[in-house]
Design a protein around this nucleic acid. Structure first.
Lengths: 141, 141, 141, 141
DNA sequence: GTGGTCTAGACCACC
DNA sequence: GTGGTCTAGACCACG
């Protein structure tokens, strides 16, 4: 029941936010299918080395957004997501992260071809790591 | 003496950190030359609509890193940066932001060609905005 | 959780610096053991009658030096200090303060025997004060 | 017309205060005799690498204390000092610096014999430096 | 004008 | 409860 979530406790970005962003991505991106069970609060807290209170907040926020549903005594599950929401969020989020990357690259005086090269390198490196883990986390292309 | 810095006060990332990241990029990317004066604390605070204390902290942190030098009663200036440090930081930082973008894109099930398309769109959009501002802040390519 | 720290708010030496010097001494001198909890920011601020911001700065500076470690929501603790660093700092600091005292004494035309007499008087007076406080903070000799 | 004054611009103690303390010591300790000329404001500013405004403030403060006297177009001179003032200041100041040194040493867990050894070492080192400079700045003992 | 220190108090993240 | 960020404004040191 391990989720592919990485957080950095020392980051200036609050932990609860790091977790929410990644979990939201897994759900809206389709990696966690509708109805799939999420790890229990204390399991995820242990996995991410943080307090259960922080995870409770994350689950609460996502439940308020309608992305997950908690059933007393049973667990937490991925809720129905409207296709429309999914597509909108996907486009917005991915466009935004690329925009941020390009802003940084421009600040460091990188040109377009540099950026494409850097992008390929990043993909290669992450695919390698994923296949090394043997989790089948390839890019599907 | 206006710096090309954009901050979002409502972001979960603290303002001081947003400013530090961008200023660090401007210095290490060479857009602010060695010895160049930075805006005064009060001026930058006014420009970014935040408290002088926040800017004070930014300048203090960057001085602790050795990137800038402040002289009481005189102002704040870009310090000497060893070419080696500059290049290392540049590579690390730009590689890291692309890595983060790719991680997000993978979470949303984007493939390699999708990413290259998204990258081009992001560059086009930012170049357009830059040229609209007429500040000559093009990508030099 | 009271620390033996004395500050003088009217001194030309900034308060944050007075506190840092004394706290550094307590840690590097071994009076505060590794892992020991420091008073909370608010507690120490109250104790020293200064703003929490001032204490915050002190803790921040000492954390940047690697002498203490803060954990959000938990508290602030003495970090691991390498014995080597501790001994080096101890020697440097104590030698420096004696050097400063001697410089002043020379400026006032004091001779060597005068200085030794003054030193004994100062030790006697401080030991007396310490024992009067009954805190067991003797000189261990 | 060089005065034996050392200042550290990066110290948290204000420059004007560092200079005043040392100059006061030279006058009240008798190293600068009554009627002796002080360096001109701009000469001392050049010597200490600081602004003439800072030196002007120092001279102004000491003149307000009655330790020096400025004669238009002629220069600045050491004023008459009452023997009583001289002795009182001397005792207070020297006792104070030793007290501070002992406080630090105690914080670092130094014992009485350690302190006497450190004192002798500091005197030796400073005498050596003084004689190396050939300025006759011995301890007169 | 510049930067440097400090206050009193607010709100947030985390345990 | 803990630490972390931010504000609005004051006063000082320095050029």
């Amino acid at each position: 029941m391990l989720l592919p979530i990485q957080i950095s406790p020392s980051s200036p970005e609050p932990m609860y936010h790091q977790i929410e962003v990644q979990l939201r991505g897994l759900i809206l991106g389709g990696r966690l299918a509708e109805g799939a069970p999420l790890p229990s609060i204390r399991e995820l807290a242990l996995d991410l080395s943080c307090s259960v209170i922080t995870i409770r907040r994350v689950y609460q926020d996502l439940e308020n957004e309608g992305l997950i549903r908690t059933r007393q005594g049973t667990g937490t599950f991925v809720a129905q997501v409207r296709m429309e929401d999914r597509e909108r969020n996907r486009l917005e989020t991915v466009a935004r992260v690329f925009r941020e990357a390009v802003e940084t690259a421009l600040r460091y005086d990188c040109g377009r071809t540099d950026m494409h090269r850097l992008l390929d390198e990043a993909i290669d490196r992450l695919e390698l790591e994923a296949s090394a883990q043997g989790k089948g986390e390839d890019t599907r292309e």
